[in-house]
């Protein structure tokens, strides 16, 4: 009775309605429009079945985009979660420089992705960029590359920038979890004669598994829907060499092929759903049978 009077629907409504109209509704209606011939003026005349999907898969540029998105997602998820875990353990050690390192690691997270991407176009500059200059100065000339134009390594260069920018986030999430583990646990294990690796494997890892799960999911989603960093670093080029799903969506949109663009958006949605469910199934304790 009191609940009804004090916790009113009018409190929920303003935010939730905006969320429903401007976030949920576009996602839901996307399911429908992906099967229409939606044109540049957002009109459609008929349902076209799977035609949009077929033309996406037949276009060679699109298949590169799917492959690239896959590479980017896998590489950045492994590097962000792997490095994040190592670094979180590292900054959990008491050193003089620990506090500085923690702040430094998190710093790129707050920066604009466009600003970061442009800074790295300078660092990746083929003749004067810091990376190649450094390699040359330590006589590793053979490793010097055209980081942003060589189509074999371009996705890895972009993945590096993404990793540089976002690893700080996984670090602080891991660190927060590590700090909730009571010291008595690892000390007890030490007394029982467990090696440092055994402690990690059997005590620490199971306890931080939920955060591993969270970090993997955040990284997967971030990787699949990447747009700004890729767009600012390469614009999807040269040619289609660094196209990802969202740069492809933008390209279809700017050419007025909105049916295809919505179909590509829908595929992105399905990929995210599938990968997140798989991760949850294997890593989330609550769901284990």
């Amino acid at each position: 009775m009191l609940k009804r009077q004090y916790y009113r629907y009018s409190m929920l409504a303003p935010g939730f309605c905006i969320f429903l109209v401007f976030f949920v509704w576009p996602a839901v209606s996307n399911f429908f429009y992906a099967f229409t011939n939606l044109d540049a003026t957002f009109k459609y005349t008929r349902l076209v079945g799977f035609d949009n999907f077929i033309s996406i898969f037949e276009d060679s540029g699109s298949s590169i985009a799917f492959k690239n998105t896959f590479i980017f997602t896998v590489v950045t998820t492994i590097s962000k979660v792997g490095l994040g875990f190592l670094l979180a353990n590292f900054v959990n050690i008491k050193l003089r420089s620990t506090n500085f390192l923690r702040s430094a690691l998190f710093f790129p997270v707050i920066l604009s992705p466009i600003a970061v991407a442009l800074a790295f176009t300078a660092i990746f500059h083929p003749s004067r960029g810091f990376l190649n200059v450094l390699l040359q100065s330590v006589h590793l000339d053979f490793l010097m590359q055209h980081w942003l134009t060589n189509r074999h390594i371009i996705m890895y260069s972009i993945s590096f920038v993404e990793t540089w920018k976002w690893t700080g986030l996984t670090v602080i999430l891991f660190l927060a979890a590590l700090q909730t583990i009571p010291k008595e646990l690892t000390e007890a294990a030490k007394i029982d004669g467990a090696t440092s690796w055994e402690q990690k494997r059997h005590i620490i890892f199971p306890l931080i598994l939920p955060v591993v799960n969270t970090n993997i999911i955040i990284s997967l989603i971030g990787g699949l829907k990447v747009f700004d960093i890729v767009y600012a670093l390469t614009g999807g080029g040269p040619g289609n060499a660094s196209n990802v799903i969202n740069t492809m969506v933008y390209k279809s949109f700017s050419q007025g092929r909105n049916g295809e663009a919505t179909a590509a958006s829908l595929l992105l949605f399905v990929f995210i759903l599938v990968l997140v469910s798989i991760t949850n199934k294997y890593l989330n304790k609550d769901n284990r049978g």
Binding site: F19, V21, F22, F23, V24, W25, P26, A27, S29, N30, Y33, L38, F42, I217, I221, L224, K225, N246, V249, Y250, F253, N258, A261, T262, S265, L266, L268, F269, I272, L273, V276
Partner: peptide
């Protein structure tokens, strides 16, 4: 909604309408 990506084209359509 935490895992749902935004659907940019249909969002554009809504904003357009």
């Amino acid at each position: 909604g935490l895992i749902l990506p935004s659907s940019i084209i249909t969002t554009y359509m809504l904003m357009f309408d």
